[in-house]
């Protein structure tokens, strides 16, 4: 690929939209994902991203707008996980993982039922799961931007107490932080963020951006602002390089983005050993 090739790529409106949408998704997913990784809620994040499948197929079947299905199922999933994952008021790891797994499987089974009732074709399913960056409109870019502002506002308000409960739940609750409310709120925001982006970029891509940049950044530094900034930077790099490779290469953007994300994590894990302790 040459410079003129890059120049030509930017002359296509769909690529400009894709790069803009990708950048917005990268910022939102990497910050949400940073908290998700810190709180060890990766499995919940993956399950919430899987919620968009029954959401989409339910909306198709009922004839309501897709967005209603996505948001409805993601919020429902977040509430179910939050409700089922506590025993005697405390997070219980083995019960939590069972609840999340069961919610995910039940949701996917429902999605399959809706899809077969609808008689739909699987081509839509593939683009839903694996994303197609082509055909993103300027309107969708603006919608994404608005949702991202909302998500960032949540973290601006609740970020500090959320950090406190994530690091030391007992101490935070002793100091009067509303641990339970924050847990539910975070899961709902995670669900909404995923729902908003999944309908435009595909489930796989969102999840790759949620987990890998944050995991890599947290390997490299323990300083919070630096770690968040690194994670945003990593996510931006992954999305833009991935989209460019997909433009010039032969395969789906999902493959490039997830491979880059994996490589980044491996490099960060290896790099930690080289850093002074």
């Amino acid at each position: 690929m040459s410079f003129s090739g890059l120049h030509q790529m930017l002359a296509y409106p769909f690529m400009v939209h894709a790069l803009a949408a990708g950048a917005i998704v990268a910022v939102m997913a990497s910050i949400t994902g940073w908290f998700m990784v810190l709180r060890r809620e990766t499995f919940a994040g993956h399950t919430l991203s899987a919620m968009s499948f029954p959401g989409a197929s339910a909306a198709l079947l009922a004839g309501v707008p897709l967005a209603a299905g996505y948001f409805g199922f993601c919020a429902l999933g977040a509430l179910l996980i939050a409700a089922g994952s506590r025993t005697a008021g405390r997070r219980n790891p083995s019960q939590e993982s069972a609840v999340i797994g069961a919610v995910q499987a039940a949701a996917l089974a429902l999605g399959f039922l809706f899809l077969s009732l609808y008689g739909g074709v699987l081509v839509d399913l593939e683009s839903l799961l694996f994303g197609s960056f082509l055909g993103i409109t300027a309107d969708q870019v603006w919608t994404l931007a608005a949702i991202t502002v909302g998500v960032l506002a949540f973290f601006a308000i609740a970020g500090r107490p959320l950090l406190y409960t994530s690091v030391d739940e007992l101490a935070a609750s002793a100091r009067g932080v509303r641990v339970r409310v924050l847990q539910v709120a975070f899961l709902v925001v995670l669900g909404l963020a995923v729902a908003a982006t999944a309908q435009i970029t595909g489930v796989l891509l969102v999840f790759a951006l949620l987990v890998a940049p944050a995991a890599g950044a947290q390997q490299l530094t323990a300083r919070i602002p630096l770690s968040i900034a690194l994670s945003v930077l990593f996510a931006l790099a992954i999305v833009w390089i991935g989209l460019t490779l997909a433009y010039f290469g032969n395969y789906s953007v999902g493959f490039y983005v997830s491979t880059l994300a994996f490589a980044l994590y491996v490099v960060c894990r290896g790099g930690r050993k080289l850093l002074p302790a």
Partner: peptide
């Protein structure tokens, strides 16, 4: 830990997309 699983598993799904292609 679940972060490692998450990252490995994103990549495996990405490979699945490649094979589908």
């Amino acid at each position: 830990d679940d972060v490692t699983i998450g990252v490995v598993f994103v990549w495996v799904l990405g490979l699945g997309v490649l094979f589908l292609d």
